[in-house]
Every structure is written in C-alpha cells, then in structure tokens.
Amino acid sequence: MNDLLADAIFWAFAAGSVTTGLRVFRTDSMMRAAFYLLASFAGVGGILVLLGAEFLGMVLILMMAGEMLIMAIVMVMFMMNPAGLNPMWMVHQHRVAVAAGAGSFVLLASLPFLVKFPDRPAPQPEEATAELGTELLGDSMLVFQTAGVALLSTMIGAVVIANRSGRFGVAEEGSQEPTVEPGAGDQR
C-alpha cells in the first residue's frame, strides 16, 4: 500500500471517528448515541489496523459491537425518550465542561509537538499478531490470566450489585439498613 493511500484512509478514519464521537453528545436519540459511539470505536479500530496492531483493532471493534448493543438495551430500559422523538438536551455545567474538554484537547494535542521523539524508525514487526499470541501465552501469561480473573470477578460483582434482593432487603422497597438505635437489636 503506498503512503498516499494509507494517509487518505487514516484521515478518513480519523475524521469519521472524531465526528461520530462528537455526535454522541449532540444527538437527540440515545439509541443513535450508542451507535455513533460504536462508529467512533470502529474508526479507531481501523486506525489500529493501519498502525500494524491488527489483532487489537479487530478485538476493539468486536468488543464494542457487543457492548454497544448492551448499552442500547440499557438505554431502552431505563432512559426516557430513547428514540429521540423529542429534543433532548440533558447537560449540566455546560460551559465548564466545554472549557475542560477543549482545554484537555489543546494540552494533549500540543504535547506531541513539544516532545522530541527519538527518530530511529523501528523495524515494523512482520507478524505482530503471531508475536502477540506467543507473548499472551508465554512471558505475559500472568498478565493475561490476571485480566481474565479480573473480568470474572467483575462479572460476579456486577451480578451481585444488580441483584434485586439487596443486602438489607428487596431493592424496590428501599433496601434500608436496619436502625442502630441502642437497644433495638437486643431481642435475641
């Protein structure tokens, strides 16, 4: 692939990713917001593939596709106005948020031009995916396994948190902690 074509594809992905990322917070429909976010992630996944991390890029797209579908379902379940039939503008501290977002963008975007990166071009890996696979099941297996255990405990924790019967009774009834008045627990 020649450089010009790679550049064109990169800028297309980059522009698509940033615009859809902005549209997430500019659309009336929360369903659409979820799919705009998915589009933004797909753009980043495309850039990752261009950068030579094919595996990470594809995993990012696949993972986000599943996650955004779950997100869309959560939107329909909990949020008012998921279809965007009415205009939606649910923001607080908007000016502060715009300033913080623009400020962090300017700060982070200026860093690459202030830092002097070492310019010894490293040889691109021939088979990055195969090397990553060997790394996952070789030297970095402990990291990989730890990530797996962390995900498992997250699953268990999420089920416990989202469970209807809370620690102090059914969630819909308030799940209130028992009182700690002196003498209240002395009946046993």
């Binding site: 940033v18 917070f25 649910m90 923001v91 948020a97 913080a100 623009a102």
Partner: peptide, 16 residues
Amino acid sequence: AALVGIGVYGALSQQS
C-alpha cells in the same frame, strides 16, 4: 487527544 477531549466534555456535561 481529540477523542480524549470529547470524552472529558461528555463525562463532565452529561446528566444521564
């Protein structure tokens, strides 16, 4: 940086 900036804006401004 643009993506992070948009994320900061969204996390600070959205009510939902």
